[in-house]
Each structure stands twice: as C-alpha cells, then as structure tokens.
C-alpha cells in the first residue's frame, strides 16, 4: 500500500509564520475584489452575462482562496459550517417561497407578473427574477463551500483519532 499523503488543504504550517508572505499579501488584496466581483456578476446578471449560478461559484471561490492561503480553520471562523447548512436550505426556500408568494397573489406558481400586474415595463418580472436569483446565489454559494469544507477537513481528523476500521487495507 502506498504511503498516504501528509498534505492537506492547509499549505501553511504553523511552525513558520513568515512563509508565503507574497501569497498572503496578494490574497488579501484579491479576496475582497473577487467577492465584490461575484456580487457584481450577480446583480448585473440581467444586463450582461452572469446570474446566480456564476455569482455563487465566484463568491464561494473567494472564500476557498482564503481557506487555501490561511488554512481551513481560519476560513471556518469566517463562514462557520453551521451557517452553511442554514443558508443552503434558505436558498431553496427563497426560490420556492417566491413561487408560493405568486400563488398567494392569485397567479400561477412562479408567475412573477403578479408582483406588479399593472406595470408597463414588466416590473413584476424584474422583482421575481431578482428574488429567484438570490435563492440560487445562496444555495450555490453554500453548497460549493460545503463541498470544499467536507473535502478539506476530511484528512485532518482521520489519523490518530479513534478509527475502529484499519484504514490501510490490512483487513484481508
């Protein structure tokens, strides 16, 4: 059996504080820009290429970059895993709730015109698309982060902890 890797998603070992100074500085410069760009892509999605799906991925990637440079534990202090579970389901609820709202206003499910039936420039559609895209953004961002957290923290707690099943294939 091949020796298992000691590498994690955390490239910054605690022993040397001054490693990767350039990476850290550049990342600190870039992360807010990436996050703002994600929001731009989201809110500009009606006018150009973009929308909730892309914005969610870009926004999540800014936090993933943070985790790659500063370590997963630091990232978990920025966005705790407990939030992720809530936001994940909140996004689906926002999307579904928009449909229910149009229902209650007297239209079909997801018939956004009901938000502003008298508008001459389809304001109801704009509001509906806005609400739905928010739902997509929340779900996609948190699911991507959940996936990253799950893979990133899998290795750390495995060895040395209680594991009744021997991992390295010496069972047979």
């Amino acid at each position: 059996m091949k020796p298992q890797s000691k590498t994690r998603f955390k490239p910054m070992p605690e022993r040397s504080e001054n490693q990767h100074v350039i990476l850290r500085v550049v990342a600190k410069l870039l992360i807010p820009l990436i996050a703002v760009y994600g929001l731009y892509v989201h809110f500009h999605g009606d006018y150009g290429p973009g929308g909730g799906f892309q914005a969610g991925v870009i926004f999540a990637s800014s936090i993933i970059l943070y985790a790659l440079i500063f370590g997963l534990d630091e990232a978990k202090r920025v966005v705790p895993p407990s939030w992720i579970r809530i936001i994940m389901s909140l996004g689906v609820l926002v999307f579904g709730g928009t449909g229910v709202a149009t229902w209650l206003l007297g239209g079909e499910y997801l018939n956004y015109t009901m938000f502003a039936p008298d508008s001459t420039h389809a304001a109801g559609q704009h509001w509906g698309i806005f609400a739905v895209e928010i739902g997509v953004l929340l779900t996609v961002t948190s699911v991507i982060l959940a996936i990253f957290y799950a893979f990133g923290s899998r290795g750390g707690s495995r060895r040395g902890s209680h594991s009744p099943n021997p991992v390295d294939g010496d069972k047979s």
Binding site: I147, F151, R154, R158, V167, G169, K171
Partner: peptide, 15 residues
C-alpha cells in the same frame, strides 16, 4: 462532488 465523496469513503473503507 458526490462521486468524489464516494471515492474518498471507498478509499477509507478498502484502502
């Protein structure tokens, strides 16, 4: 990602 998660669990179980 689901597929990769299954692969990771398989690796932990079977080595």
């Amino acid at each position: 990602a689901i597929g990769l998660a299954l692969v990771v669990r398989t690796r932990e179980e079977y080595g």
